[in-house]
């Protein structure tokens, strides 16, 4: 999962970015509205953490520009402006959620997970693919009741594929969403992660479509593949 944090307070930006990285997200940062808007329009983010009082271009303007350009990336507004008109205006501008400072990191994470799940059309936080269970809250994967030990990158890969299960996920999508802008991983590293996950969760867990990408073919009793395809239709940017 890749997240863009737009915040003009350097000390706050660093702590949010660091805590998100420690939670396994790939994180990009921007210190003002213009930079934030530029990155949000160019990068493939799973979510945006946006401050409102920003130099150059305030958060509402960033949000409006993004939405009017058809960008549907989930946005969480994180701001010290807690007055009702500000919250209403923020949500009406197209934000998915609103969190006021000071905040608990746990709540920030939970809200981010929630808007990411919702925007992917998978509201359940625990996914069952065959005998593999992915718990996106505790960030652990189990196979046949046995907890499987994954590295953060491997978990991120599984999580992303789980979120987009039933959809074809290209290699570039994986690169866009699993690594931040400072990551200079080599392309073949992705194959290493995929093969490691296959070793741990079974050879058929990830299906390779040659020349196209990867596919996770988990059938879920609650939401079948047909429904998933419908909901994924809206995510043209992924």
């Amino acid at each position: 999962m890749r997240i863009l944090v737009v915040e003009d307070e350097p000390d706050l930006l660093s702590v949010v970015a660091q805590s998100l990285r420690e939670a396994g997200y790939a994180v990009d940062t921007a210190a003002d509205g213009e930079d934030g808007l530029f990155k949000a329009q160019g990068g493939q983010y799973d979510a945006l953490v946006l401050d409102l009082m920003l130099p150059q271009l305030d958060g509402w303007a960033v949000l409006k520009t993004l939405r009017s350009a058809g960008n549907s990336v989930p946005v969480l507004i994180l701001t010290a402006r807690d007055a009702l008109p500000d919250r209403v205006r923020g949500l009406d501008c197209g934000a998915d959620d609103y969190l006021t400072k000071p905040f608990e990191l746990a709540e920030l994470f939970a809200r981010l997970r929630a808007i990411i799940r919702r925007s992917a059309g998978k509201p359940n936080s625990i996914a069952q693919i065959g005998d593999v269970q992915v718990d996106t809250i505790r960030k652990c994967v189990s196979k046949g009741g046995q907890t499987v030990c994954l590295t953060p990158r491997e978990y991120a890969l599984v999580e992303f594929l789980t979120l987009h299960r039933g959809e074809l996920v290209t290699r570039s999508m994986l690169y866009d969403h699993l690594f931040d802008e400072d990551d200079d991983s080599l392309s073949n590293l992705m194959d290493v992660h995929v093969s490691n996950v296959r070793k741990k969760l079974g050879k058929d867990f990830i299906v390779t479509r040659r020349g196209q990408g990867y596919l996770l073919e988990g059938e879920m009793p609650a939401d079948g593949p047909g429904k998933e395809l419908d909901t994924s239709g809206g995510r043209a940017d992924v």
């Binding site: 307070e9 000390d11 706050l12 702590v15 949010v16 660091q18 805590s19 420690e22 009082m53 701001t79 010290a80 402006r81 807690d82 007055a83 500000d86 006021t100 400072k101 000071p102 905040f103 608990e104 990191l105």
Partner: peptide, 20 residues
């Protein structure tokens, strides 16, 4: 609103850094 914003910002810095 401004005073609250100005006071909340350093407060959330302290809070989040300590929490992290």
């Amino acid at each position: 609103a401004d005073a609250s914003h100005e006071l909340r910002t350093p407060l959330s810095i302290i809070h989040s850094h300590a929490e992290l």
